[in-house]
């Protein structure tokens, strides 16, 4: 068990290493002179040289990389080229928005997706299954931003034209100030993200459950005289839990990058929109910071999934 965790931690470290190498090579070695971006177009040769020294660009490559990683490990991601603020601070300020967004959406999509999947799998070929399939197909096919723009148009703009406010236009209100206002402002982004993602969970639940319901031990459960509800929920869903956990871990891990689109559509100032702005501004330290943070987040989620696996499967103990 200890060895297993050590193995997974080692893999997590490898992911982060590869990622750090990727951003390092991309931003410090690839075309474009960072010093020029920092110093601006009008800087003189001496000024550029000074900036280069400040950024450590005159040192050998490995030195630079080690320096970069050393600082990153301590949480020092450098300063924004634009406004000279520490990158870690800039990101930290945005995190509550993104976390709020992900948190609500996850609960919502699980609450929508899994019941639809179960309903579908319990009546294969029937009317309820077909309704479930339609939901799955629509959800899988709807690009997030199309659904978001559609929601904004119909649920915000049309009511507003009619003279009342159903949902607020955009923006984020802190949870601690007023949870209700917080939720009201996030309701549309949550719903958009959840509907699109719930389809994946409905499909996964349906497919896995259908397969599990064909297993011999489900027949045993029925032969015991258990109610169909218990057969499906206690015996069927128990085995469907593991693929769901895997999917959830991967999805939450990717969310840091995945919310970019939603944040764009709804004008939320989260980590994603920070990254998009940074790309427009060529503010490389921020991009590096966000990418590394995204990687760290995924690695953490993977490790949590592995631990859950060990807890869920007695054969792995």
């Amino acid at each position: 068990m200890g060895k297993f965790i050590a193995k997974r931690l080692g893999f997590g470290a490898l992911v982060l290493f590869v990622l750090s190498l990727f951003v390092f090579l991309l931003f410090f070695v690839a075309p474009g002179d960072p010093a020029r971006i920092v110093a601006g177009d009008k800087a003189s040769a001496e000024q550029l040289e000074l900036v280069r020294q400040n950024l450590g660009l005159d040192q050998p490559m490995t030195q630079q990389y080690l320096h970069f990683v050393g600082r990153a490990v301590q949480g020092d991601l450098g300063f924004s080229y634009r406004n000279q603020q520490p990158v870690s601070e800039l990101i930290l300020r945005r995190i509550p928005v993104t976390i709020s967004l992900v948190f609500g959406a996850v609960i919502l999509w699980l609450a929508i997706g899994i019941p639809i999947g179960i309903m579908s799998a319990r009546h294969p070929g029937g009317f309820r299954d077909r309704m479930g399939q339609v939901f799955i197909l629509l959800g899988l096919s709807f690009p997030t931003f199309v659904l978001g723009m559609l929601a904004l148009y119909t649920l915000y703009f049309l009511p507003k034209q009619a003279g009342f406010t159903l949902f607020p236009p955009s923006g984020y209100k802190p949870f601690l100030t007023n949870p209700l206002i917080w939720a009201w402002h996030l309701a549309l982004p949550w719903a958009t993200l959840a509907l699109v993602t719930a389809a994946i969970y409905a499909r996964l639940t349906r497919g896995q459950l259908l397969q599990v319901l064909g297993e011999d031990y489900i027949r045993t459960a029925r032969a015991k005289g258990l109610s169909e509800r218990k057969v499906v929920l206690r015996h069927g869903m128990r085995s469907t839990l593991m693929p769901l956990v895997t999917q959830l871990g991967a999805d939450i891990g990717l969310m840091l990058g995945g919310v970019i689109v939603i944040e764009q559509v709804y004008g939320l100032q989260g980590v994603g929109s920070l990254a998009v702005q940074a790309v427009r501004n060529q503010d490389r330290p921020i991009i590096i910071g966000v990418v590394l943070l995204g990687g760290l987040f995924i690695v953490l989620c993977n490790i949590i999934v592995d631990l859950l696996y060990a807890a869920l499967d007695p054969r792995m103990r």
Binding site: D216, Y217, R219, T220, R238
Partner: peptide, 14 residues
Amino acid sequence: GMVFQDPLSSLHPY
């Protein structure tokens, strides 16, 4: 009561 062919797959593994 019922007993089935393959006892491994007929018992819930978890």
